[in-house]
Amino acid sequence: MDKRASLIKAFKREMKRSHPEAYPICIDSFTNLWQYEFGSLEQLPPDIKRLVAYRAAELGLEDDDF
C-alpha cells in the first residue's frame, strides 16, 4: 500500500472511532500531516476533500487558503 492510501485508511479508521466532537481535531491533524508529507492538499479523494472544505469553512478560510 502506498503512503497516500495508508494515510487515508488511517484517517478513515480514526474518524470512525472518534466521537463527533473530535472530528475537527482529526481533520486538522490529517491535513497537517498530509501537507507535511506531500506539500499540498492535492490528490485527496472527493469524500475527504469535502470534509476538509467543510472544516475550512468552519474556520472562515477561503479555498485559496488551503
Rank of each mutant, 00 (worst) to 15 (best):
D63F: 08
L51I: 04
Q43C: 08
G39A: 08
P24F: 07
R13H: 15
E58F: 06
L7D: 05
R13F: 14
L33E: 14
F66A: 04
W34R: 00
K3L: 13
I27N: 01
P20N: 12
A22Y: 11
L61M: 08
L51D: 06
E14F: 13
L7N: 09
A57H: 06
L7Y: 02
T31R: 04
D47N: 10
Y54L: 09
R4Y: 13
G60H: 00
V52M: 05
A53I: 09
F66S: 10
D47H: 03
I25C: 08
A22C: 04
E37M: 12
I48Y: 01
E62R: 15
E21M: 12
L33H: 06
F38A: 00
K12P: 03
P45K: 01
L7Q: 06
K49R: 09
L33K: 15
K16N: 10
R55N: 03
A5G: 14
L33T: 12
V52L: 02
E14S: 15
L41G: 11
Y23V: 14
A22T: 06
R4D: 14
D64V: 12
Y54A: 09
I27Y: 03
G60T: 13
N32Q: 13
K3W: 15
Y36K: 07
L44Y: 00
R13W: 11
D64K: 12
D63G: 12
I27T: 01
Y54T: 13
P45D: 10
N32K: 13
G60L: 01
A56C: 05
L33C: 14
D64L: 06
E14W: 10
D63H: 10
M15W: 02
R17K: 10
Q43W: 10
Y54V: 11
D2F: 08
W34S: 02
L33M: 14
G39Y: 04
L33D: 06
P24S: 07
V52D: 00
P20K: 05
S40E: 08
R50S: 12
P46T: 04
L44M: 04
F66R: 04
K9W: 11
I48S: 02
M1I: 10
L59W: 02
R17I: 05
A57E: 13
I27L: 03
F38H: 04
Y23D: 10
S40V: 08
S18K: 10
L7P: 08
Y23A: 14
Q35P: 11
D47M: 07
K3E: 15
A56P: 02
I8A: 03
D2R: 09
A53H: 06
D64F: 13
R50L: 05
H19G: 12
E37I: 08
D28E: 14
L51M: 04
Q35D: 12
S29Y: 03
E42D: 15
R4M: 00
M15S: 11
R17Y: 10
S6Y: 07
D28C: 00
W34C: 00
E58H: 09
H19M: 15
F38R: 06
K12D: 13
Q43N: 11
P45I: 04
W34G: 01
F30I: 07
F30T: 07
A10V: 07
K12E: 15
V52P: 01
F11A: 01
A22G: 09
I27V: 00
R55Q: 04
K16R: 15
I27K: 03
D63S: 09
N32A: 08
Q35L: 07
Y36I: 07
R4G: 09
A57C: 01
A56G: 06
R17V: 10
K9G: 11
T31I: 07
L44E: 00
M15P: 10
L41D: 05
